[in-house]
Design a protein around this nucleic acid. Structure first.
Lengths: 146, 146
DNA sequence: CCGTCGATTGAGACATCATTCAATTGTCTT
DNA sequence: AAGACAATTGAATGATGTCTCAATCGACGG
């Protein structure tokens, strides 16, 4: 049975095209399906991991600090940056590590973390994309995708 | 009173520098504080909104689709892309809109959304930053579906 | 070795979130 | 004007996530 959504899409295309044959609907469904699976679903999973890892004040602050520092920082130093328990920092670093945003190295009884290239790239773009006062006037800037 | 964390930092610097005066600790605390507040906390709030908006499968898929489409899409078309209720899509688009990632336009009784420049920038970098495993061809990614 | 300290782990409490259902708004059609 | 339909909104609920506390692991020094 044809789903309701498909029915609505048919009416929409009918509106847009002036007319609408069922093959138009099918073609459009194909195109939309292509948009959905434009890149592998495993990749989407990874991207969600990365975004979820960054979407938290504690973790974002830690990543920011490590990127800004440009060098590895000891956990005890990170402790001075965010205002949560030491345990929370450890959890946060674990999540970030799994997302490939930081890397840890043990040095004696201290442990040092540094931001990965991935983290640097994302934080950089985040700054550029957010900071420049003003969201996207729809026409002006042109991020020409090639 | 000196927090425990500060005590630990002192011991750490003692280890690293071989010696440690209390002014070294204070200086390091200053440096770390500078990292923390490297950019305004209001900005961090905005960034968290953006990241949180993207850190969800439904919303990320919608943004991806709109970016890939390169043009505005009707809600009824988006409905064919993600597998949630129409209400959920509306909620998702609302969240994305607040985060400045999509913009909506009403056209008759249909409503069309398109990705903002911010969304394009973020999705682009996300793609580039994630596909790290030996990516030589930077052009249109062509992930063979499994 | 034993005790201390840095750091991590697990469990539980608490908050936040994502989705669906039901009701509503606004537009078009007849 | 009334009904149909696209889309949004609000409330409720089940699921996730985040933090703290307590216990544990590993490395170091006496």
């Amino acid at each position: 049975m044809m789903s309701q959504s498909t029915e609505r899409l048919r009416r929409y295309l009918d509106d847009e095209l002036g007319e609408c044959r069922s093959e138009d609907v099918d073609r459009r469904l194909d195109e939309l399906g292509a948009l959905e699976t434009a890149l592998g679903s495993d990749r989407v999973g990874t991207e969600l991991d990365v975004l979820s890892a960054l979407a938290n004040e504690t973790r974002l602050t830690l990543v920011r600090a490590l990127v800004a520092a440009g060098e590895e920082l000891c956990v005890c130093e990170l402790d001075a940056i965010v205002d949560v328990s030491e345990s929370a920092i450890s959890h946060a670093l674990s999540t970030l590590s799994e997302a490939g945003l930081v890397e840890g190295r043990k040095d004696g009884r201290w442990k040092k973390y540094r931001a990965t290239n991935r983290a640097v790239a994302l934080v950089t773009v985040l700054d550029g994309s957010i900071g420049e006062s003003g969201v996207a006037h729809t026409g002006t800037a042109r991020p020409d995708d090639e």
